[in-house]
Amino acid sequence: MQPAPTVPADDQAIATGFEHFYETLRRLTPRGPLSLTAASTLRRLERSGPHRLSELYAPEGISQPAMTQLVTRLEKEGLAQRTADPTDGRAVVVSITPAGRAAVAHRRAVRAAALSELLQGLTPEEHAAVVAALPALEKLSDLATTRAS
Protein backbone atom coordinates (compact mmCIF):
# COMPACT_ATOMS: atom_id res chain seq x y z
CA MET A 1 0.00 0.00 0.00
CA GLN A 2 1.37 3.40 -0.98
CA PRO A 3 1.61 6.18 1.58
CA ALA A 4 -1.24 8.67 1.55
CA PRO A 5 -0.48 11.89 -0.32
CA THR A 6 0.17 15.02 1.70
CA VAL A 7 -2.83 17.32 1.43
CA PRO A 8 -3.26 20.79 2.98
CA ALA A 9 -5.46 20.70 6.09
CA ASP A 10 -8.14 22.92 4.52
CA ASP A 11 -8.34 20.63 1.47
CA GLN A 12 -8.59 17.60 3.74
CA ALA A 13 -11.44 19.28 5.64
CA ILE A 14 -13.20 20.08 2.35
CA ALA A 15 -12.82 16.46 1.19
CA THR A 16 -14.22 15.18 4.47
CA GLY A 17 -17.13 17.63 4.32
CA PHE A 18 -17.91 16.65 0.72
CA GLU A 19 -17.81 12.97 1.66
CA HIS A 20 -20.27 13.55 4.48
CA PHE A 21 -22.56 15.64 2.29
CA TYR A 22 -22.38 13.06 -0.54
CA GLU A 23 -23.65 10.44 1.90
CA THR A 24 -26.46 12.81 2.86
CA LEU A 25 -27.42 13.35 -0.79
CA ARG A 26 -27.44 9.60 -1.40
CA ARG A 27 -29.89 9.18 1.47
CA LEU A 28 -32.08 11.97 0.05
CA THR A 29 -32.12 10.44 -3.45
CA PRO A 30 -35.35 8.59 -4.17
CA ARG A 31 -35.03 4.85 -4.42
CA GLY A 32 -36.18 3.62 -7.75
CA PRO A 33 -35.26 1.74 -10.87
CA LEU A 34 -32.33 4.04 -11.77
CA SER A 35 -28.88 3.29 -10.41
CA LEU A 36 -26.62 6.20 -9.52
CA THR A 37 -24.65 5.63 -12.73
CA ALA A 38 -27.80 5.46 -14.87
CA ALA A 39 -29.12 8.67 -13.35
CA SER A 40 -25.74 10.38 -13.78
CA THR A 41 -25.54 9.29 -17.43
CA LEU A 42 -29.04 10.60 -18.11
CA ARG A 43 -28.18 13.91 -16.41
CA ARG A 44 -25.06 14.20 -18.59
CA LEU A 45 -27.14 13.61 -21.74
CA GLU A 46 -29.73 16.10 -20.52
CA ARG A 47 -27.13 18.74 -19.70
CA SER A 48 -24.78 18.45 -22.65
CA GLY A 49 -26.75 16.71 -25.37
CA PRO A 50 -26.12 13.53 -27.34
CA HIS A 51 -22.78 11.74 -26.89
CA ARG A 52 -21.03 8.92 -28.60
CA LEU A 53 -21.06 5.81 -26.47
CA SER A 54 -17.26 6.02 -26.28
CA GLU A 55 -17.56 9.48 -24.64
CA LEU A 56 -19.84 8.32 -21.84
CA TYR A 57 -18.03 5.58 -19.98
CA ALA A 58 -14.85 7.33 -18.75
CA PRO A 59 -16.59 10.27 -17.01
CA GLU A 60 -18.86 7.77 -15.24
CA GLY A 61 -15.91 5.69 -14.08
CA ILE A 62 -17.07 2.44 -15.68
CA SER A 63 -15.83 0.26 -18.54
CA GLN A 64 -17.04 0.62 -22.11
CA PRO A 65 -18.81 -2.79 -22.00
CA ALA A 66 -20.60 -1.75 -18.79
CA MET A 67 -21.72 1.51 -20.43
CA THR A 68 -22.95 -0.43 -23.46
CA GLN A 69 -25.05 -2.62 -21.15
CA LEU A 70 -26.33 0.43 -19.28
CA VAL A 71 -27.34 2.24 -22.48
CA THR A 72 -29.04 -0.94 -23.74
CA ARG A 73 -31.07 -1.06 -20.51
CA LEU A 74 -31.91 2.66 -20.68
CA GLU A 75 -32.98 2.20 -24.28
CA LYS A 76 -35.23 -0.77 -23.42
CA GLU A 77 -36.81 1.34 -20.66
CA GLY A 78 -37.42 4.18 -23.12
CA LEU A 79 -35.14 6.60 -21.27
CA ALA A 80 -32.42 6.90 -23.92
CA GLN A 81 -32.08 6.21 -27.62
CA ARG A 82 -29.28 5.41 -30.03
CA THR A 83 -29.11 6.94 -33.47
CA ALA A 84 -26.52 7.11 -36.20
CA ASP A 85 -23.95 9.85 -35.73
CA PRO A 86 -24.80 12.49 -38.36
CA THR A 87 -21.08 13.22 -38.85
CA ASP A 88 -19.95 9.58 -39.06
CA GLY A 89 -22.41 6.92 -40.17
CA ARG A 90 -20.27 4.19 -38.62
CA ALA A 91 -20.69 5.61 -35.11
CA VAL A 92 -23.70 5.78 -32.80
CA VAL A 93 -24.79 8.63 -30.56
CA VAL A 94 -26.87 8.27 -27.42
CA SER A 95 -29.47 10.86 -26.46
CA ILE A 96 -32.02 11.23 -23.71
CA THR A 97 -35.72 10.75 -24.50
CA PRO A 98 -38.63 12.76 -23.10
CA ALA A 99 -39.26 9.88 -20.65
CA GLY A 100 -35.60 10.07 -19.60
CA ARG A 101 -35.94 13.82 -19.01
CA ALA A 102 -39.04 13.17 -16.92
CA ALA A 103 -37.20 10.55 -14.84
CA VAL A 104 -34.32 12.96 -14.20
CA ALA A 105 -36.73 15.79 -13.35
CA HIS A 106 -38.62 13.53 -10.90
CA ARG A 107 -35.43 12.46 -9.09
CA ARG A 108 -34.29 16.08 -8.93
CA ALA A 109 -37.65 17.30 -7.59
CA VAL A 110 -37.87 14.64 -4.88
CA ARG A 111 -34.28 15.29 -3.79
CA ALA A 112 -34.82 19.08 -3.88
CA ALA A 113 -37.91 18.77 -1.68
CA ALA A 114 -36.01 16.68 0.86
CA LEU A 115 -33.05 19.05 0.76
CA SER A 116 -35.36 22.04 1.13
CA GLU A 117 -36.61 20.60 4.41
CA LEU A 118 -33.04 20.32 5.66
CA LEU A 119 -32.21 23.86 4.50
CA GLN A 120 -35.00 25.13 6.74
CA GLY A 121 -32.76 24.21 9.68
CA LEU A 122 -30.04 26.65 8.62
CA THR A 123 -29.78 30.23 9.75
CA PRO A 124 -30.23 32.87 7.02
CA GLU A 125 -26.46 33.42 7.09
CA GLU A 126 -25.72 29.70 6.68
CA HIS A 127 -28.24 29.46 3.84
CA ALA A 128 -26.62 32.46 2.13
CA ALA A 129 -23.19 30.83 2.53
CA VAL A 130 -24.46 27.68 0.78
CA VAL A 131 -25.89 29.76 -2.07
CA ALA A 132 -22.65 31.75 -2.34
CA ALA A 133 -20.64 28.51 -2.65
CA LEU A 134 -22.68 27.22 -5.63
CA PRO A 135 -20.58 28.86 -8.40
CA ALA A 136 -17.37 27.40 -6.96
CA LEU A 137 -18.99 23.97 -6.60
CA GLU A 138 -20.16 24.11 -10.23
CA LYS A 139 -16.64 24.98 -11.34
CA LEU A 140 -15.22 22.06 -9.34
CA SER A 141 -17.73 19.75 -11.03
CA ASP A 142 -16.77 21.10 -14.45
CA LEU A 143 -13.06 20.64 -13.68
CA ALA A 144 -13.66 17.06 -12.55
CA THR A 145 -15.70 16.31 -15.69
CA THR A 146 -13.04 17.80 -17.95
CA ARG A 147 -10.34 15.79 -16.17
CA ALA A 148 -12.29 12.52 -16.56
CA SER A 149 -12.96 13.06 -20.26
Results as ranks from 00 to 15, higher is better:
Q81H: 15
L70P: 06
S48G: 13
H127A: 14
A91T: 10
L119F: 05
R90H: 10
K139W: 13
T123W: 00
V93A: 02
L143K: 13
L45D: 03
S141I: 13
G121V: 07
P135Y: 02
L119N: 03
A136P: 04
E60I: 11
R52K: 09
T68G: 15
R90S: 12
A112V: 05
P50R: 08
V94K: 01
G100F: 00
I96C: 01
D142A: 15
E60V: 12
A144M: 10
A112N: 07
R44G: 09
H127M: 09
R73C: 05
E55M: 06
L134V: 09
S54T: 12
L56S: 04
A112G: 05
R107W: 13
R107S: 11
S48E: 13
R47N: 10
I62H: 00
L140C: 11
M67K: 05
A114L: 02
R107L: 14
A102E: 10
L45K: 02
T97Q: 05
V92L: 15
A109D: 02
R44T: 08
T72S: 15
S95G: 12
E60R: 14
L45Y: 03
A66P: 07
R107H: 11
H51F: 10
G121W: 09
A133M: 06
D88H: 06
E126A: 06
L45G: 01
A112T: 04
V131H: 07
T83Y: 15
A80W: 01
L53M: 10
A136T: 08
T68E: 13
A91L: 10
P59R: 02
V130F: 05
T83E: 15
R147H: 15
K139N: 12
A58H: 10
K76V: 11
A128M: 01
A129K: 07
P98N: 01
Q120N: 11
R111S: 06
G100W: 00
Q69V: 14
K76M: 12
I62R: 01
G78N: 03
A84M: 15
R108S: 11
T68N: 14
R111G: 06
G78T: 01
L119M: 05
A113D: 09
V131F: 07
D85N: 07
T123P: 02
V93N: 04
L119R: 02
K76G: 13
A80T: 01
A99M: 08
A133Y: 05
A84F: 11
H127N: 09
S141T: 13
E77N: 12
H127L: 09
R111I: 04
A91C: 10
R147S: 13
E126I: 03
A58G: 08
L118T: 03
G61C: 02
R44Q: 09
T87L: 11
T97S: 05
P124F: 00
H106I: 08
D85G: 07
A113Q: 08
A80L: 02
L122Y: 03
Q64K: 14
R147A: 13
R111E: 11
E55Y: 07
G89T: 12
A102M: 09
T68C: 14
T68M: 14
I62Q: 00
G121F: 08
R108T: 11
V92W: 15
A128E: 01
A133C: 04
Q120D: 13
T83V: 14
P50H: 07
A66V: 07
E138I: 10
P135L: 01
L118A: 03
E46Q: 14
R108H: 12
H51V: 07
L56I: 04
R52N: 05
R90P: 08
